[in-house]
Amino acid sequence: MANDGPTPTERFLRGVIPENPVYRQLLGMCPTLAVTGNMKAAMTMSGAVLFVLFCANVITSLIRGLLKPHLRILVFTLTIATFVTIADRFLAAYLYRMSKELGAYIPLIIVNCIIICRCEVCASRQSVPHAAADAVGQSLGFALALASIATVRELLGAGSWFGVQLFWAKGTAAEQYRWSIMAQPPGAFITLGLLLGAAVWIGNSWEKRRKTRAAVREAGEAD
């Protein structure tokens, strides 16, 4: 199989913003809403996704020559499930409290559309460096998306960031101003909805600016 298609660097850069898994592809919504109550949980989840995506992409890329259409999805699923089990056990052994807080959302990485999608679109068609760069890029994009939502929710809902209390501390009079709905399901939905709208708006205005600049350049060349 020829290595045509995006280069590893392109794969990496695309995954961060242009093809951001949450804001552009709208994949992996379940963990995005569930673990973004605070930054620590969000970053632990991103780390787990990075590990699983990287290993699954690399393994899939190594065996891509042997994959036949019928059993493709079966092989992807088996690989992903194994690495998710390893990640889950690792967290239970060395980060026990965080593992309990994340609960069932770590095993849910198995059905996270991001990973199956990347295996299908990139790893099963290109070589290992491409697959690895793609995995790192997409995970970075995922981490940025989670961080944006978790920052909003933790700052508004608890007044802290990464567990460090910045304002609205417990026991002070200011505690009543905490917007505690942000720490609960409705806050998650509304935050993601508004941030998604913001992302679409930013994307549209960039597109418009790019097109005007291209049109101006063309008009300049035509003269």
């Binding site: 709905i181 409705p186 939905f189 909805g193 508004l194 998604l196 709208g197 679409v200 708006w201 549209n204």
Partner: peptide, 23 residues
Amino acid sequence: VPGPLKGAGITLIVAGILALAFM
């Protein structure tokens, strides 16, 4: 519906209000 929110954005906000109701 405002342009950027059309589709997934407004659906999520409505889902948030639904979640509030179910609370």
